[in-house]
Amino acid sequence: MRSPQDIGGLPEGPVDTSEHSLTFWEKQADGLRAAVGAKGLMSSHESRRAIESLGHDAMERLTYYERWTAALSRQMVDRGVLTQDEIDAKVAQVRQRLHDSGELELAPGEAEKFA
């Protein structure tokens, strides 16, 4: 009944007021989402719906830009811009390429997330 993003009033701990600059990849993700939005392929409303549709689990475990990225992926499939097979194949290809070039250093728990 309660949508995963609808958290106003729920009990939570103290606010971490420290500053975090965006990482390079988060800036890239932000720019990509803006560019896709400017093409009329994902409005802010569609973006929010796509994020909500990731479910409670994703909302609690994923970081902000991880949610955006997951939502963009889903939206591109929903809009027929990309297919899930294309995305899975490209993810595997990028992973292999980064591995071969020595740029891949997956954090613990990350390898299990690949399809």
Binding site: G8, E46, R49, R79
Partner: peptide, 27 residues
């Protein structure tokens, strides 16, 4: 938001007519 449903309040101002997000979210 769920925390406001069923609650009573006062109209403070009118902003104008906007696209309905509940429809726009589905393109």
């Amino acid at each position: 938001p769920i925390y406001l449903r069923g609650k009573e309040g006062v109209v403070e101002r009118y902003f104008g007519a906007f696209g309905n997000p509940e429809v726009l979210a589905y393109n």
